[in-house]
């Protein structure tokens, strides 16, 4: 092979070495951009998920909602039910997901505070609900503050 021929082959080899490196970067960037777009498509706002889970705290008689003569009083919290044990029965993260899902700290502005098992004060946001609290046969205005800890 002549000197010119050797130079030609070497030049092409250099070109392809750089080209392969650049092509690899482009492919990875491409995959990364499409992956990001896909994540945007499947994203469900955490606030919505937490809000729907938190519905049970004020509306379900198996959580804290008060009941009178078999009628459930949605939005009325029975102070006697507002305990750690009731919360654990109402929303239990222990068997599977632990900190990998939503955990809550529930606080009645004029009353006590209870936490789910895997709540570690790593709040992402707070939900507030105007509620009535039934205590000793009397209804009182109150605010339920739900501190939400997302997956850690």
């Amino acid at each position: 092979m002549t000197e010119e021929g050797i130079f030609d082959v070497a030049r092409k080899l250099m070109f392809w070495t750089i080209a392969i490196f650049m092509i690899t970067i482009v492919i990875f960037t491409f995959a990364f951009v499409i992956g990001g777009y896909k994540n945007k498509l499947i994203k469900v706002p955490s606030e919505l998920q937490a809000e729907l889970i938190a519905l049970r705290f004020t509306n379900s008689p198996d959580c804290f909602a008060a009941e009178q003569r078999g009628v459930v009083l949605a939005g009325v919290i029975d102070a006697a039910k507002f305990t750690k044990e009731s919360l654990q029965a109402c929303y239990n993260t222990e068997p599977r997901e632990r900190v990998k899902t939503f955990n809550f700290r529930l606080e009645l502005k004029n009353g006590k505070m209870i936490l789910t098992d895997n709540y570690f004060h790593n709040d992402k946001f707070v939900l507030q609900k105007e509620v009535l609290v039934l205590q000793d046969g009397q209804l009182k205005n109150d605010q339920l503050i739900v501190h939400v800890q997302e997956k850690i």
């Binding site: 469900v44 919505l48 998920q49 729907l52 889970i53 938190a54 519905l55 049970r56 705290f57 509306n59 379900s60 008689p61 909602a65 459930v72 949605a74």
Partner: peptide, 12 residues
């Protein structure tokens, strides 16, 4: 999942 959580949060 959202719907199941919602159903768990209603009475009746």
């Amino acid at each position: 999942r959202l719907m199941i959580n919602t159903l768990a949060g209603i009475s009746g």
